[in-house]
């Protein structure tokens, strides 16, 4: 299944998420927006590392992966990803 989210997270910057998932696990997550992350390639790697992660754990795992790579975020919180995923999945459920 696929779904998208656009909104302002608690981090303050615009967040766009495209989520592809199957059986409760992410197949691919694309996280975009006007936030900052240092170092940028650490963010890319953390984002790539979300494939296969249960949807309910995405924000937590994302936060851990960022921390492991020493990534500092500005304008985005890892928990913003949970809010986006919840919104995407809720919409998908409503649409049946």
């Amino acid at each position: 299944m696929t779904g998208s989210y656009v909104g302002k997270g608690r981090g303050g910057k615009l967040l766009r998420v495209d989520l592809y998932w199957q059986d409760g696990r992410a197949e691919r997550v694309s996280i975009r927006g006007d936030f900052f992350a240092h170092p940028e390639d650490g963010f890319d790697a953390a984002e790539d590392g979300l494939a296969g992660v249960p949807l309910t754990e995405l924000g937590q795992v994302f936060g851990r992966q960022l921390e492991a790579r020493g990534v500092t975020l500005f304008g985005l919180l890892p928990s913003d990803l949970d809010d986006a995923v919840e919104s995407i999945v809720s919409s998908a459920i409503k649409q049946g």
Partner: peptide, 9 residues
Amino acid sequence: LGYFQGLND
């Protein structure tokens, strides 16, 4: 574009 922004967005 910012590094994390989507071109077509």
